Lab assay of single mutants.
Amino acid sequence: MTEYKLVVVGAGGVGKSALTIQLIQNHFVDEYDPTIEDSYRKQVVIDGETCLLDILDTAGQEEYSAMRDQYMRTGEGFLCVFAINNTKSFEDIHHYREQIKRVKDSEDVPMVLVGNKCDLPSRTVDTKQAQDLARSYGIPFIETSAKTRQGVDDAFYTLVREIRKHKEKMSKDGKKKKKKSKTKCVIM
């Protein structure tokens, strides 16, 4: 069974824990209790493949930012979460993405942009803004509501699919490099 290491990042209060708990335990946590770091595991079937999701729910508070490099190193894919009623959390996505790329030393890291709290009427981040940002990053965008469960499975499952595509691409690139290195030079 394939294991996928997913990391949920975003500013404090955007609903990272609520999304994760909704996926794992099928219930909505409405009281806000700032996370330092929590880890969850769940076995699911995605596109006919049974897999184990190892999900790291991270601290959004700035005082825990020193811990970010460590979990970013171990993560295979990242859910970059903002709240649709919090423009600052949307603007912060850029910083999370840049930090992930720096730590992973790669421009090509599996990510999904997630606009959470889409059940709320007080939207300050337009869907088109988020779609445009995701398009500019070359990553999928999904709106979710941890409260109603809308888009929750889709967000995590899409990230797994992005990781699969990335692994497939990397193995193809690896095979191309191996083929090239088999060419021999004969000096007579």
Rank of each mutant, 00 (worst) to 15 (best):
Gly115Ala: 11
Val114Asp: 00
Glu91Trp: 03
Arg97Tyr: 15
Gln99Tyr: 11
Met72Ser: 06
Val114Ala: 03
Leu79Pro: 01
Glu107Met: 10
Gln99Leu: 13
Pro110Tyr: 01
Glu63His: 08
Arg73Phe: 07
Glu91Cys: 03
Pro110Ser: 02
Val81Asn: 03
Val81Trp: 00
Arg123Ala: 14
Met72Pro: 07
Thr87Ala: 14
Met67Gln: 12
Asp119Tyr: 03
Phe82Ser: 13
Thr74Trp: 08
Val81Phe: 13
Tyr71His: 14
Cys80Leu: 14
Ala83Cys: 05
Leu120Ala: 15
Ser122Val: 06
Asp105Pro: 06
Arg97Leu: 15
Asp108Asn: 06
Val109Asp: 01
Gly75Leu: 04
Ser65Gln: 08
Ile84Lys: 13
Asp69Ala: 04
Val125Cys: 10
Gly77Thr: 02
Lys117Trp: 15
Leu120Cys: 13
Ser65Gly: 11
Arg123Cys: 14
Val103Arg: 05
Gly77Pro: 00
Ser122Met: 08
Val81Leu: 10
Ser106Cys: 12
Lys104Phe: 15
Ala66Tyr: 08
Val81Glu: 05
Arg123Lys: 11
Phe90Gly: 04
Arg102Thr: 09
Gly75Cys: 14
Met72Asp: 10
Glu107Gly: 09
Glu98Met: 02
Thr124Asp: 13
Pro110Val: 02
Leu113Cys: 07
Val81Pro: 03
Gly77Glu: 00
Glu76Leu: 10
Arg68Ile: 07
Val109Trp: 04
Val125Arg: 08
Glu107His: 07
Ser106Tyr: 10
Phe82Trp: 06
Ala83Pro: 14
Thr124Met: 10
Glu91Tyr: 04
Asp126Arg: 04
Ile100Asp: 01
Asp105Leu: 06
Arg73Gly: 13
Lys88Ala: 10
Ala83Glu: 15
Asn116Cys: 15
Cys118Pro: 06
Asp105Asn: 09
His95Arg: 14
Asn116Arg: 00
Lys117Glu: 11
Phe78Asn: 00
Cys80Ala: 03
Ile84Arg: 10
Met67His: 10
Ser65Lys: 05
Lys104Gly: 06
Pro110Glu: 01
Pro121Val: 10
Pro121Trp: 05
Ser65His: 05
Tyr71Cys: 14
Pro121Cys: 07
Pro121His: 11
Lys117Tyr: 15
Leu113Ile: 15
Phe82Pro: 00
Asp119Pro: 03
Pro110Ala: 03
Arg102Asp: 04
Cys80Asn: 02
Glu76His: 10
Arg68Met: 10
Pro121Met: 12
Ile84Ser: 15
Asp69Trp: 02
Glu76Ser: 07
Met67Tyr: 07
Arg68Phe: 06
Cys118Ala: 12
Asn86Glu: 11
Lys88Trp: 12
Arg97Val: 15
Val114Leu: 09
Cys80Pro: 01
Thr87Val: 06
Pro121Phe: 09
Glu63Asp: 10
Val125Asp: 11
Leu79Asn: 00
Gln70Glu: 12
Asp126Glu: 09
Arg102Phe: 05
Met72Trp: 08
Ser89Arg: 03
Arg97Trp: 15
Val112His: 01
Val112Phe: 03
Val109Ile: 13
Val103His: 08
Gln70Tyr: 07
Thr124His: 11
Val109Ala: 04
Asp69His: 05
Glu107Lys: 06
Ile84Gln: 15
Asp119Glu: 11
Val114Gly: 01
Lys101Trp: 04
Leu120Ser: 13
Ser89Asp: 09
Arg68Gly: 14
Asp105Met: 11
Met111Leu: 05
Thr74Asn: 11
